[in-house]
Amino acid sequence: MAAPAPRRRGVRATRWLLIRVASGVGVLWAAATIAFLLQTLTQQSRARLIYDQRVGNNSIPSKGVTAAINHQYGFDNSVLHQYVSYIGGLVHGNFGVSYFQHVSVWSLIIQQIGPTLILTFSALILAWVIAVGLTLLGAGRHNIWSSAIANFLQMLSASVPSYWVGTILLVIFAVNLHIFPVLGGNPLLALVLPMITMALPVSGFLGQVIQDEFSSALEQPFVTSSRSRGITDFGVRTVHVLRHSVLPGLTLSGWAVGYLFSNAVLVEQVFDRAGIGGVLTKAASEGDVPLATGVVLLSAAAYVIANIVVDILYVFVDPRLRA
C-alpha cells in the first residue's frame, strides 16, 4: 500500500482549512447579526442619545433635529436596508462611527487593541509554561511532595478570581516590595503582574487536563517498551508522554483565548493599563452602541481565529489527523 501522494494530501488539507475558515466566517456573521439586532432594538433612543451627547444635557430634541440625526446616521431607512449596509460595511472593514467620539470605531479599537493582544497571548504562553512545567515535575511521580504541591497550586489557581489575585500581587510586589511599578513605568515590567494575574487561573485549568492525560499516557504499554530500550525517565516524559498529554490542553486553549480576552477587560482596569477594556467600559457606560458592538465583534473574531489556530496545531501534534 503506497502512501497517498503528497499533492492530493495538500489538496485535502487546503479544503479542510477552507471549511474551517468558512465555518469561522459563519460564526462571525451570526455574531454580527446579533450585534446589529441589539443596535436596532435601541432604535427609539439612538437619536436621543446622540443629541444628549452633543448638547451636553437632557433637553428634549425637536422633531426636526431628531429627523436630521436619523437621516445623518441612516436610522430612517428600513431595518433590512440598515442590516445590509451594516454587514456590507463590516465586509469592507467599516465598523461604523462612534456616536460620541465621531471617529470610526475601527480606528478607536486599533489604537487600543495592541496592549490587550500582548497581554492575552503572553498570559496564554505563561499559562502553558506553568501547566507543562508542573506536569513534568508532578504527574505520575511517586514522590508525594512534588505532586501534592503541583496539585495544590493548580487547585488554587483554578479557583481564585483574577481581580483578587491582581490586587494581592499589586499589594505585595508593587506597593510593599517595589519590584514592579504600580502604574506605568517600563512597559515590559508593567506587563509582568497583569500577565501573571491572567495566566494563573488558566494554568490551573490547563494543568488539570494535561496532567490527567499525562498520568494515563504514562501507564500505556508504549512507555514500557520505550523504557526497555534504555530511555531515561525524563526522556519518556518529554519525548513520548508530553505530546499525548498536550492534545486536550490545546482544545482548552481555544476556550482560554476567549476567557483571557474577556478577563483582560477586568485586569486592565485593576492595573489601570491601556487596552480594549477601557474602550469597552467607556462605550458601555456612555451607550456608544457602535463602539461596544465593535469590541464584541472583535472578541468573537479573536475567538474564531484562536480556534482555527488550535485546529491547525492539533494536526501538527497528532499526525494521525493528517491522513
Partner: peptide, 19 residues
C-alpha cells in the same frame, strides 16, 4: 536495557507510540 536485553511486548496499538 536494549543493549543486552531486548523486550518484545504484546501487540496492542498502544505498544508503539501512536503519535
Amino acid at each position: 536495557r536494549g543493549r543486552d536485553i531486548g523486550l518484545v511486548t504484546q501487540d496492542a496499538l498502544v505498544s508503539l507510540d501512536q503519535l
